[in-house]
Amino acid sequence: MTTASSADHPTRRDFLYVATGAVAAVGAAATVWPLVSQMNPDASTVAAGAPIEVDLTPIAEGQDIKVFWRGKPIYISHRTKKQIEEARKVPVSSLPDPQSDEQRVKPGHDQWLVVVGICTHLGCIPISHEGAYDGFFCPCHGSVYDTSGRIRQGPAPTNLVVPPYSFVSDTKIQIG
């Protein structure tokens, strides 16, 4: 490609080639963005993921319900005195993912445990009121959670996730 002409000739030509290549590269990169971005949740999915309100009155002590928020099951458990005590008795430092029960509930609403019902191992849905700790048991690979939704046994690395929520009133929470 190099010719035997004057010295500045190749430089000017090289500049043109580099400029053209650079502009084309920028265009290609910009074109890729919409192609990637389209895979993200669309606007209707995002809008449908808005916060939801849940009325707690129908849930009797010792019972729990499952609601869906953003396509995920959320367990809302109305815990008994015994369950709360059990959860608070264990020394936090002995847990695989140390977290106190108080950190996982809202102050003044100790009886309400709200967790995302998705096993932190590989995403199966644990069954409530099962397993050695009267909490949750995941049938997929045998992870056991306690009455605070903390991991106690099995392959799951972390506690069940507490979703963002707040008490609108004593008997109503807003998730999200």
């Binding site: 919409p34 192609l35 971005s37 389209q38 993200n40 669309d42 606007a43 209707s44 999915t45």
Partner: peptide, 26 residues
């Protein structure tokens, strides 16, 4: 993003155009 069903195809195309990121462009 498209749904090949007689009851949903028209709507799914509109949803592509309205809601999918850059759906109108694609």
């Amino acid at each position: 993003h498209y749904t090949p069903h007689a009851d949903m195809a028209f709507k799914s195309v509109e949803l592509i155009v309205r809601d999918v990121n850059y759906g109108w462009l694609l």
